[in-house]
Write a protein that binds this DNA or RNA. Structure first.
Lengths: 302, 302
DNA sequence: TGCATTACCTGACTTTAGTCAGATAAATTG
DNA sequence: CAATTTATCTGACTAAAGTCAGGTAATGCA
């Protein structure tokens, strides 16, 4: 590791530490210790089980308990035993708590907006931030099946279409490119897998089936900021496993030779090139993979 | 400001806050409160005046004094009155202090290295970090005259040459391109100005003179990560002021039309295009600016 | 059913962090 | 040279953070 690279990371750390500190300071101005503010914030963000809060904020049981008591005394939260297990407890913001939470959110948003306002071409800064965000917390990326019409799926698909349009130099229309009846990417016919970091879309892939043992991989996309981390491999693996669970034995896909990263991945994961199997205008390369063979053993590598 | 952009900044903030916290936690494991560790670190980095320490760490005088006392009691630092002004005091690491400082440095470096090791193509991540670093702390960028042969100048010139080579598609040789006798970019003939963030090179520009009222601008460069922030304008302004202070009345420069950003800047800052005034192989555009005219008033805009 | 475990709470504590009003000694100013 | 300012220190605080040993009620298990 070059000394120079390390100093770049450390310079980075210093500069963001200042920002983090400034945000915390702004939180302090509401007359409440930082610990309590953090707890209130976490509850507002949906961490309502006391044990979840403890895990998230890494607090001692005694300390968290006292912070909850102080927020209760302020009338900002209410605590009730959990229905399922009456030993554990849930917290909920009161109306006053909601308001206070909103103020903290506003402070956070204002700080973020202030950073952006200082920059004419914020898009460049935001892209850089995305790269760092994803790199630093990539172990928190989750791969999961979601509804093809869900919000996160739509975000992915929109970005996918925009990028494909730019790459192919034409307006790419999801509808035109054999856009599936929604049901074909839903259980039991098929599925749709996204990778996300919190609510940030990282990538997606669809398995489009018709209820038999043959299905098609569609809409494979990784966010530009997330490339080079080997996520496409994990995404595809998730999709293949989901397909197998649906009883699918053969997967096919079409792609375009301009998507060089994708084509390279398919080959590496044990897909074999086959003859054109549709007459869509965009694709010019076609692959197949048998889920029952040992073929995917080869792909474990990456 | 789009909600989506703000949430990108906030996601970024969350992910780096985790890293910052982890680093601080690693510091805590040396059995010393974070405040004392920070002070020790700052002293090791060269902040040896008590007043500098106080300004840097934003500590109350009483608190800093106590932290210094505790480090002294540990035998890690020594404090002596300042020679010039015996009211103020200077601290210095003892041998034991040096060792302890080194351990903290090692911890910091290890954390940074750990981040990099997780990434195959770290250069992309580092570039992103640089963009963020510079954007977040751009008010700390200093513009100053340095020796043309200093370390920071050399860093800038190396990067400049590498980039020009890539842009022009040929090996760019600083020596060939009318490289000045060193004395021509030194007082009293000329000067060399760099922009830096700490020890990170951000940009440079040289004023190459021969002792009369005519001089030439050379080696104008802004680090890729620092572009789009209007720094070139400030760099050029600094250079022009330095030139004026040297008694120079007319500045000339040559450039290449592939450097579109630079050419745009010169025009905006009131430079006028003139005839070729040398036969160097690289440049194909030539500009001049009179420092005595009101021309530069125009340039205040940006 | 009784004993262990779990999830949380309380009380009693220590350690850090942070504040503020003098005190002291050196430098500056009129 | 006396008065003021400056840079730092000390003592006496308060507040916040963090630790730990019980205690209580709900749950799980033999």
């Amino acid at each position: 590791m070059q000394i120079d690279q390390i100093s770049r990371v450390r310079n980075f750390g210093r500069s963001v530490a200042v920002e983090v500190g400034a945000l915390e300071e702004s939180f302090l101005n509401r007359g409440r210790p930082l610990g309590a503010a953090r707890v209130l914030n976490a509850i507002g963000l949906g961490y309502q089980n006391v044990s979840d809060l403890r895990a998230l904020l890494k607090l001692d049981t005694g300390q968290l308990s006292r912070l909850l008591r102080s927020l209760e005394a302020e009338g900002l939260i209410e605590t009730t035993p959990n229905e399922d297990d009456r030993r554990s407890r849930q917290t909920r913001l009161t109306k006053a708590g909601e308001e206070e939470f909103t103020i903290y959110e506003k402070l956070s948003n204002e700080r973020a907006a202030a950073i952006l306002e200082r920059h004419k071409n914020a898009e460049r800064l935001l892209d850089a931030m995305d790269i760092v965000t994803i790199a630093l917390s990539r172990e928190n990326i989750v791969f999961e099946e979601v509804d093809y019409a869900s919000e996160i799926a739509t975000k992915c698909l929109t970005a996918f279409a925009a990028e494909l349009s730019a790459r192919l130099g034409v307006e790419f229309d999801l509808k035109k490119s054999g856009d599936p009846e929604l049901s074909q990417m839903k259980h039991p016919n098929g599925t749709f897998v996204v990778a996300r970091l919190g609510d940030m879309p990282i990538g997606c892939v669809g398995v489009k089936g018709r209820g038999d043992t043959l299905a098609e991989i569609k809409r494979m996309w990784i966010a530009p900021a997330a490339r080079g981390l080997g996520l496409a491999h994990r995404l595809m693996t998730t999709a293949e496993e989901a397909a197998r669970a649906l009883g699918i034995e053969t997967l096919r896909l079409d792609t375009n030779s301009t998507l060089v990263e994708a084509v390279g991945l398919y080959r590496k994961m044990g897909w074999s090139r086959i003859e054109r199997f549709n007459d869509d205008p965009y694709p010019d390369l076609f692959f197949e993979k048998c889920l029952r063979s040992d073929a995917e053993d080869f792909a474990r590598g990456e």
